[in-house]
Simulated scan of single mutants.
Amino acid sequence: MGKIVISANATLDGVVQDPDGQEGFGPGGWFHRFVAVEDLQAWTTNETGEVLHAEALLLGRRSYEWFATRMHGADVRVSPEWADTMNGLPKYAVSSTLENPEWNNTTVLNGDAAKEISELKRRVDGDILVYGSYQLVRTLLAEHLADELRLTVFPVVLGTGQRLFDEIGDTTPLRLADTRKIGDGLVFCTYEFLHG
Rank of each mutant, 00 (worst) to 15 (best):
A74M: 02
R122A: 10
V78R: 08
N9Q: 14
G14K: 01
D178E: 11
R150G: 06
F34S: 11
E47A: 15
Y134R: 11
T44L: 04
S79E: 03
L140E: 08
E99W: 01
R175W: 02
V108T: 11
G161Y: 01
L98P: 12
F165D: 06
D184M: 07
V37I: 09
K181N: 03
I128F: 13
A8T: 06
P101G: 11
L109H: 10
V94D: 10
L89F: 04
Y131T: 02
I117Y: 10
M71V: 01
M71F: 05
D13W: 00
K115H: 13
Y92N: 04
V156Y: 07
L158S: 02
P27Y: 02
D18K: 11
D112Y: 04
L120R: 04
L59T: 01
E81T: 06
V76G: 01
V130L: 14
T69F: 10
Y191N: 02
L129I: 07
A36V: 05
S96L: 07
A177T: 03
E23D: 12
H195L: 09
G196D: 12
N100G: 09
S63N: 13
D178I: 00
V157Q: 03
Y191A: 01
R180I: 02
R77V: 00
N105R: 12
T11E: 08
T171H: 13
D170I: 03
E148R: 13
G185K: 11
